[in-house]
Design a protein around this nucleic acid. Structure first.
Length: 288
DNA sequence: AACAGAATCAACCGCACTCTG
DNA sequence: CCAGAGTGCGGTTGATTCTGT
């Protein structure tokens, strides 16, 4: 079906944001919180499309954004997560404190791709560049099961078997249900509720690994319990890396340990369920 | 100093998904 | 169950900045 434009484009500004526009947007969100992006521009007195406001806020104006260069640990974490998730920039961004999907995507395209290529690694498949020449008769199939504590639990399977271009198929199974995750609570993805990573043999040639990949924005480290840190570390330390990735884990695990309320990061679809802790120290509300 | 090409990154576009009536 | 509205995401574009000649 055709879609109506997201907003009236005839009288909307485009291009770079001015300081005044930024301030209007900040002031409005400070007062009213995020959400209702479609009506926000009018309410805030901005001649901008709602989507543009959302992008500007999420990618640039959010107070918890970390600006500046990516660290080596962040680099490696991005590579590792990309090898597991592909171009799921928003999910990857959820694991990197203060980074946005757009920022990571740009960084990937401008830096990491080249970095991997210089290492002789295909940035798409995370396999050696000459892997295509290697026999595809390798029958080993790795099936990773990831429990994502969002509204549903999902299984992600990476199937290398019978894949012509050597790219793992990531299969997300929405049918799996989570008995432990309470949808009405905004739990960090790495709380004690998460189960330890489990390896589930499926057949002689298949191994199912529970990755415990959760989605969440980072919090400050001083909010992270040791249990959370441990759980996160377990995730990274136990996940089978792609065949070619040799990555220092300690720093990456530290990064992943910085997770936060899911309301903050992804919001609840119903909009009525909230942990009540979604106001941060700067006074901004998130999604709920 | 001037120019060209490369690199970077903010912003846009359109599709897909979810929610709601 | 269906259609439309609202929102989020990933790919792409284009303006700006950087670097080399």
């Amino acid at each position: 079906m055709g879609r109506s434009p997201c907003c009236e484009k005839a009288h909307t500004n485009k291009g770079a944001w001015t300081k005044q526009e930024d301030q209007r947007l900040i002031n409005y969100i400070r007062a009213h919180g995020e959400g209702c992006w479609r009506s926000l521009p009018k309410a805030a007195g901005l001649q901008r499309c709602g989507k543009s406001c959302r992008l500007r806020w999420i990618n640039y104006l959010r107070p918890d954004l970390k600006r500046g260069n990516f660290t080596e640990e962040e680099d490696e974490l991005i590579i590792k997560l990309h090898s597991l998730l592909g171009n799921k920039w928003s999910v990857i961004a959820g694991r990197l404190p203060g980074r946005t999907d757009n920022e990571i995507k740009n960084y990937w395209n401008t830096h990491i791709k080249r970095k991997l290529i210089s290492r002789g690694i295909d940035p798409q498949t995370h396999r050696p560049l000459h892997a295509a020449a290697i026999s595809t008769t390798n029958s080993a199939t790795a099936v990773f099961t990831t429990i994502i504590p969002t509204t549903t639990t999902k299984n992600i399977s990476m199937d290398y078997e019978n894949d012509v271009d050597q790219k793992p198929n990531i299969i997300i199974n929405n049918n799996a249900t989570s008995s432990s995750y309470d949808e009405t609570k905004c739990n960090s993805g790495t709380t004690e509720e998460t189960k330890p990573l489990e390896i589930i043999p499926q057949s002689t040639s298949q191994v199912m690994i529970n990755l415990e990949l959760s989605i969440g924005l980072p919090l400050h480290t001083d909010h992270i319990s040791s249990a959370e840190s441990t759980a996160s570390y377990n995730f990274l330390a136990t996940v089978a890396p792609p065949p070619t990735a040799a990555v220092p884990m300690a720093g990456a695990a530290e990064m992943v340990a910085k997770t936060v309320c899911l309301c903050w990061q992804i919001g609840f679809q119903g909009g009525s369920q909230c942990c009540g802790k979604c106001k941060n120290t700067t006074g901004f509300y998130r999604f709920c």
